[in-house]
Design a protein around this nucleic acid. Structure first.
Lengths: 220, 220
DNA sequence: CAAACCATTTGATGAAGATCAAAGAGGCTT
DNA sequence: AAGCCTCTTTGATCTTCATCAAATGGTTTG
């Protein structure tokens, strides 16, 4: 679709590319749509491509021997994931799953490696997104270790509301169970966190959130 | 010191560099020693260099508004940190502190950025270590969310013992309180985890660990 | 419209870890 | 070797969160 390509060329990843590199990568990209719950790739599988999210949401997760699964990241439109497979590997270190219907841009790793030999802007773009991913992952660890569930939720809400520039109210971009995964909680845990925040300046109606008192929120 | 330089040229970071790049970087490196508890840099400060650990251990941590601090990573000799500041920033996103007396190789960010324009192997080396750092950070999140304290400790012990190739016994490379930070625990919590493992194939005597039954360990 | 389905909420309980306080154990200094 | 200082362990308590079970609510479908 046309808007998919526009999303791609407007992504943070493409912003760093030279005109030539952008053209070459656009040439070689594969756009692919996935249905909710489809696996995009699985942990342990040989890595073949990295991805830019164009539409929908993707959940990255790791499994442990006994079968339990932890989600480690939720990717939104514009986000890049598995770019680290360009220089690590050879196998995916986590699974990627469509958290809802979504469209991705897939970049073949070998092709990009080859193109990168001729155009440094590709390395620059990769390093840039990888740096951001690394910092936000470190931040996630700190958040997990320092803050309680209601605090993490409050922090997410403030940040999201700010991005949306809607001081009044806004809609969660996805299902609450996905938000729970993003925050490292069970759905029940998230629900209780919302319940608690109702006494601290937040009104919830389904996916619609209204921040009535952002001071109270910050003061947790 | 001579062995410091040897440590540097044997590091994973240098392994990817061309002869030319290795020479240029060796030229521009600053070796610096820190005393235990010295701050190497602080969160929020303008980023000036990234580091390779040559000797000793470094703790990376983030603070939150109320002053509490979470350590997000412990770096050992050979590890690289703050390399993401080459393409992110401009300020350090976490603090780095000498967890014991240590020696670091400091690389001026601007200098390395300039050198990287002429030699792609620098970008490759940076991407390589950054990829590894990103994957191990994601792994840390999964570990935190999936495993209990004794399980994380067991996992660390098995991995460390394996690296050391000493099926019998080995010494922890650092103070237990630092191990606690690495595993995201309080010192008390780590102590209790050790106590619990004593019933599961582990003998502890100060810093000396003996794995008496690695099967029992795995079966937590 | 009713039925079925799925997401979310609520309740009750349990386990894991943090925290505070104090005792024990090394290791170093003198 | 005695004393001191710091690290580590242990005990008691409290908070947080996961888990299991069941109720509620909203949406889709026949």
């Amino acid at each position: 679709m046309n808007s998919d390509l526009a999303m791609l060329t407007n992504s943070a990843f493409f912003a760093d590319l030279s005109r030539k590199a952008a053209a070459a990568l656009s040439q070689s990209v594969t756009l692919k749509s996935f249905r909710e719950d489809d696996m995009i790739f699985r942990e342990g599988e040989p890595a073949r491509f990295f991805c830019v999210v164009l539409r929908g949401f993707v959940k990255l997760s790791k499994a442990c021997e006994n079968g339990r699964i932890a989600s480690v990241r939720v990717c939104e439109p514009g986000d890049v994931f598995a770019e680290c497979m360009l220089r690590a590997g050879p196998d995916y270190a986590y699974s990627a799953e469509a958290a809802e219907d979504c469209t991705l841009a897939l970049f073949d790793l070998d092709t990009v490696r080859a193109l990168a030999e001729d155009d440094r802007s590709i390395d620059m773009a990769v390093m840039h997104v990888m740096s951001r991913n690394l910092l936000s992952t470190l931040n996630c660890i700190a958040e997990d270790r320092l803050h309680t569930a209601p605090q993490r939720l409050a922090s997410y809400l403030l940040q999201t509301a700010q991005n949306d520039r809607k001081p009044a109210g806004f809609r969660l971009p996805f299902r609450k169970s996905l938000l729970a995964a993003k925050l490292g909680l069970t759905p029940e845990g998230l629900s209780r966190a919302f319940a608690l925040l109702k006494d601290h300046g937040i009104a919830v109606q389904g996916r619609t959130i209204r921040i009535e008192n952002s001071e109270a929120l910050r003061g947790l």
